[in-house]
């Protein structure tokens, strides 16, 4: 039942190539998934600004259009306002925890360096070890990098808070009961019955194609995230055959192989959206000219638009908060490793210092 503890051990060059490959892979996945999400956000924004699909459902002029009711239900299901308020409240704590670990780590280096300098001043050239300041440069550079990343995260937190501030009233409205929601939407006398008209059918078909497209994107995103490939064998073979690893070439060709088709499917999806939205815009113009609009209908439409975009913002804010919470927790792991590196080197320097002191006091 022997398991070789060193089974996974690989030469340094392979280890470094593996981590660079995983960086390239992460960037590829982020780019593909990011462009899909960005396109979906754009699509939702355009539809909300045209008050679609609500305008097609809103024939009675006073009840809550079905799509708005569905959006309200989905927000309540996801925990409503409270769930995002709680996540927003947690952000400062997560930030402080990370900052403290970083500050403590750098303080260790500073304190040890101060003592090293004092002893160098006291013993002059007899204190002949490398100055701590020189030794700690790489760690301090890494520390500065973490500080920079934390500063960016603070800005991201603020973006999320502002986004929440801009939409929380409307989100709160969506979380209310259907009666309260209905009462809050100005009613307007029923629009001329457009039920059977061709333009409503065209718009409906376009909207269902857009929904289908968005659903396909969810599966596409899962597939893209599920791709895995173990590069260690090809890196090991390259090292064995050529004595060196052309990481870039090997990684890029593998990434192209793994994600080439996905890239095409993403581009196709983006292109389809452009086409469909173009048609939606033109059909919507016909639709608007057909239905009579007056102050009342405009007022009602404005509130419906705000409710639709409040739902989209709720989804976006929830994604941002999930991303932010994950970011801070992942960063804590990395900072704890950094802290260990700092305490290790400081411990080694202290041991070395005590020995040097002993020698000097004896001589």
């Amino acid at each position: 039942k022997f398991t070789d503890l060193f089974e996974k051990m690989v030469p340094m060059a392979v280890q470094q190539s593996m981590s660079i490959y995983s960086q390239r892979k992460a960037e590829t996945v982020n780019r593909l998934v990011g462009s899909l999400r960005e396109a979906t956000n754009l699509c939702n924004g355009v539809l909300a600004s045209l008050n679609l699909p609500a305008a097609l459902e809103d024939l009675s002029g006073d009840s809550v259009p079905q799509s708005i009711a569905e959006k309200a239900r989905s927000i309540v299901q996801q925990g409503g306002l409270q769930s995002i308020e709680q996540l927003i409240k947690d952000l400062p704590e997560l930030l402080t925890r990370n900052r403290e670990i970083l500050d403590e780590s750098l303080k260790m280096l500073d304190d040890e360096e101060t003592t090293d300098n004092e002893l160098r001043a006291k013993f002059n050239q007899r204190w002949n070890r490398t100055p701590s300041g020189d030794l700690y440069k790489p760690l301090r550079a890494e520390g500065a990098n973490f500080r920079n990343v934390l500063d960016k995260a603070v800005q991201a937190d603020q973006v999320v808070r502002d986004r929440y501030g801009a939409h929380c009233d409307m989100i709160a409205l969506l979380c209310k009961s259907e009666d309260e929601l209905s009462a809050a939407i100005p009613s307007a006398n029923p629009t001329k019955t457009l039920q059977g008209s061709e333009v409503v059918n065209v718009l409906r078909s376009l909207l269902s194609q857009l929904d289908e497209m968005k659903k396909e994107r969810d599966t596409l995103e899962e597939e893209i995230k599920a791709v895995t490939f173990d590069m260690s064998t090809s890196f090991l073979t390259a090292l064995a055959q050529d004595g060196a690893i052309n990481e870039e070439q090997l990684s890029l060709s593998q990434l192209d192989q793994s994600y080439g088709t996905y890239n095409q499917r993403v581009q196709a999806s983006l292109h389809m959206q452009e086409e469909l939205l173009g048609k939606v815009q033109t059909s919507h113009q016909d639709f608007s000219s057909l239905k009579q609009s007056n102050a009342e209908t405009n007022q009602r439409e404005e509130v419906l638009k705000k409710l639709a975009s409040a739902h989209d913002s709720y989804v976006e804010i929830s994604n941002n908060l999930r991303e932010g919470t994950k970011f801070y927790n992942d960063l804590t792991e990395i900072l704890l490793k950094f802290q260990n590196k700092c305490s290790d080197i400081v411990f080694a320097r202290k041991t070395e210092r005590d020995e040097l002191l002993k020698d000097l006091q004896q001589s």
Binding site: M12, S19, I20, S22, Q23, A26, E27, N30, G34, P138, L139, E142, N145, F146, V149, K152, A153, A156, V159, V160, N320, E323, G324, F327, D330, L331, I334, K337, K341, I345
Partner: peptide, 16 residues
């Protein structure tokens, strides 16, 4: 994405 990427921070630099 809104938050910075941690990918390049994960690379463990070995101190000689």
């Amino acid at each position: 994405s809104l938050y910075p990427s941690l990918e390049d921070l994960k690379v463990d630099k070995v101190i000689r």
